[in-house]
Design a binder for these strands. Sequence first.
DNA 1: GAGAACAACTTGAAGTTTCAAGTATTCCGG
DNA 2: CCGGAATACTTGAAACTTCAAGTTGTTCTC
Lengths: 159, 159
Amino acid sequence: MAETPWLDDDEMAAWLALVGVLLRLGPALDSQAQRDAGMTHFDYQVMAMLSGAPERRLAMSELAARTNSSLSRLSHVVKKLEARGWLARSPSPTNRRVTECELTTHGYDVLVAAAPGHVSAVRQLVFDGLSPEQVRQLVAIATTVRANLDASDLRTLDG
Amino acid sequence: MAETPWLDDDEMAAWLALVGVLLRLGPALDSQAQRDAGMTHFDYQVMAMLSGAPERRLAMSELAARTNSSLSRLSHVVKKLEARGWLARSPSPTNRRVTECELTTHGYDVLVAAAPGHVSAVRQLVFDGLSPEQVRQLVAIATTVRANLDASDLRTLDG
DNA sequence: GAGAACAACTTGAAGTTTCAAGTATTCCGG
DNA sequence: CCGGAATACTTGAAACTTCAAGTTGTTCTC
């Protein structure tokens, strides 16, 4: 751990505010999606990523990467969504250890129906009151943090 | 829902980056805290908030507010931490429906031992690579988003 | 071209969080 | 000061996520 310089005032303020967002935004999005569309925010993300892929199809591991989730988490969720008929799994024709996931027509319809409410929630919860300038700042900041997270994944923290 | 203007390019970029952070930062912090201190990041937050309060004591509802959690979630977690001897509950002397929570000496020691690893993780995962300018921007942005979240809590979304 | 590592999943159990009730206490209007 | 609302929690069940294996298939190395 070596030496650990404490957080300065700005950093502490940023950290507290960020934790507040972290802890509240997830539940808030889940609650909206659950109420309006009977799905989790993560369910929505999975279907949205599929809908944007060619053929509305992706390998599980690729889908996990694009939804920022573990393969295990994805596997459980996909099983649930498959049971609802919103997507279907099938073995990849080219690599037999790969499972591909495809959004069904029904799933696509459900996604389309859920989209406006989702976008409206994101607007209300995140972008309301932010200037265009701040939105650009947010892109830069969040991108840097994501890079930090990716780097730490590899080093399992602390190196 | 009224009309729903879609997200523009900057907003979409910000949203995707933010979701990435949202989905990865929580687990990353949990994993560090679990590995180094045998606790959840949320457990840490609870104990840290108590340690900063006068007498290291707070009512459950106040603690819930300061940790951005539901009372129910807090209640379950406090029960767990109490079983470990890290904190103790007792009825408030002044208001009989209030339960107060106090960090024990042992709990304080555990917290102090966990702090350096936690701070180091926050530094590594969040602040690494951010300029002081960006840290200040983050404060402003996160504060605005928090205000949005608070506002939506009251209106239960969509008004 | 075996066998060892590795990669892509799946699964069941354990831990966490939410959800829906339920209980006890305090507040407030008449 | 009575009764209905609101507040402050607690609890058990359901839903979700992680964790630790386990399976099957691919790739690499000698």
